[in-house]
């Protein structure tokens, strides 16, 4: 009997093959591709303009200056990119489950979550990535932050852990559809919440500070991880722990998704 091994390298290879095909076929709808790219650029520009308008009125918020805020903004844009690129199919999950079409993903000899998410790769996320990175560099320069190996490493590690939080929130929100029929609002909420990520948590009142830290970890998408770079003298323990908590949180949301999928009974034969 053949037991075939499927390790990490297998999954990475498969993933690149699938998204290469996906992107190729997506490009064949040229108008669709161009329009959605333009739309993405417009969304980011509008976001920028709103940000700039606000700051031309208030030069600083609660001790946070313009460039620091800009850094947070760029940081949050980059942190949500993996969610947008890799987990976009979560938006369709509710429909598949509701129609009973989800069953078609259940017969492959590979990880179900991986297989399901690999079906869609959102190229538009890259635009966001470049916007975000550009913003970070611009703010970095104006804040006169040192450029050295340790700082870059910190940036990468904490960007990754921040993105884990966003991925976890969205995955957990999407997974609710395995239990709740009308779960769209929960998923939508997770999208809306990310808008609160780009502000320092100190501007919120204590109740929301608590909620955004411990219940809906929005503050981990930009604020806590950025502190490591922006305010190296006053880094709270939570910031240092964010890679671990992020990993744990994502693992739990993945487990929740898989648990939901296993109780799925493919209604509507």
């Amino acid at each position: 009997m053949n037991t075939k091994k499927r390790g990490l390298s297998f999954y990475i290879k498969i993933y690149f093959k699938i998204i290469a095909q996906d992107i190729k076929s997506r490009m064949s709808y040229r108008a669709d591709f161009i329009i959605s790219t333009l739309g993405m650029i417009a969304t980011n520009i509008v976001g920028f303009v709103a940000f700039w308008l606000m700051f031309s009125k208030f030069p600083s918020i609660n001790g946070w200056g313009y460039y620091e805020m800009l850094f947070l903004y760029g940081f949050s844009l980059v942190a949500i990119t993996p969610t947008q690129c890799l987990l976009d199919n979560n938006w369709n999950l509710r429909r598949y489950v509701y129609d009973g079409d989800f069953v078609k993903y259940c017969f492959r000899p590979i990880n179900l979550f991986f297989y399901y998410e690999s079906e869609v790769f959102d190229v538009k996320g890259f635009g966001q990535l470049f916007f975000g990175l550009g913003t970070i560099c611009y703010a970095w320069y104006h804040l006169a932050l040192p450029v050295n190996f340790v700082m870059i490493l910190k940036l990468i590690v904490f960007l990754l852990s921040a993105s884990l939080f966003m991925m976890a929130m969205q995955t957990a929100a999407a997974a609710t559809c395995f239990w709740i029929e009308n779960s769209f609002y929960i998923l939508d909420l997770s999208l809306k919440l990310k808008d609160y990520a780009k502000y320092p948590i100190t501007i919120y009142n204590p109740l929301f500070k608590f909620i955004f830290t411990f219940l809906l970890p929005v503050a981990f998408i930009a604020y806590y991880p950025s502190l490591v770079i922006l305010r190296p003298d006053e880094v709270p323990l939570l910031s240092w722990l964010s890679p671990v908590i992020g990993g744990l949180f994502f693992y739990l949301s993945y487990k929740m998704w898989m648990r939901g999928a296993s109780r799925y009974d493919g209604s509507g034969s």
Partner: peptide, 20 residues
């Protein structure tokens, strides 16, 4: 996972192929 390696499934009108 192992079971899937040794079975094939077609569910009526739900194509399991990549649509595009």
């Amino acid at each position: 996972t192992q079971n899937s390696q040794e079975i094939g499934v077609v569910f009526g009108q739900r194509s399991q192929l990549w649509w595009a």
